[in-house]
Amino acid sequence: MLTIDTVTREQVEDFMFLEAEMLDEWRLKEWLTLFTADGSYYVPTTDTPANASPDNALFYVADDRFRLEQRVERLLKRTAHAEFPKSKTRHLVSNVRIRARHDDELDVGAAVLTYRTKMGLTETYIGSYRYRIAVTPEGLRIREKRCILDMEGLKPNGRISIIL
């Protein structure tokens, strides 16, 4: 069984690579099971400090567990026009590092490059990840996922219609 003291970077990497695979294969309902019951997902705006709170700063995305489920439900509908027909995506996760361990939780950093292709155009999202990953009897679970974009705004992307 995994414990907070013995979990290795390789195990964390495997978990994050699995997550990337689920996203790229649009297995979004399955992806939701990687989160804790109180899990959240954030993408701050690019002129906001990386550790800002969505309670007092404008983000691009600030989903609690309920809204995250609703995001997934929306994206799987034909009426989610921005993702119909669905784009092809590829999440490349690299530079994974366990930055700290406290209580039942890992503080994990990584670099991420995501490509989205639709209607003859390929767009790139460049950034870093910061995860709070809970070590539970059922395995690793995401308590918070934060994608911090290195770009100056969403140019030329225009939207975050996929999960980063």
């Binding site: 993408v43 969505p54 309670d55 007092n56 700063a57 404008l58 983000f59 691009y60 995305v61 600030a62 809204r67 609703q70 995001r71 929306r74 989610a80 026009h81 921005a82 993702e83 969403l154 992307n157 225009g158 939207r159 975050i160 219609s161």
Partner: peptide
């Protein structure tokens, strides 16, 4: 207010991406 904003508005919200597509 900010929670409301993000639900609908902006390129990561539940509405604006579809406007951009349109």
């Amino acid at each position: 207010r900010l929670s409301n904003f993000l639900e609908f508005l902006g390129p990561g919200g539940f509405a604006t991406p579809d406007d951009v597509e349109a």
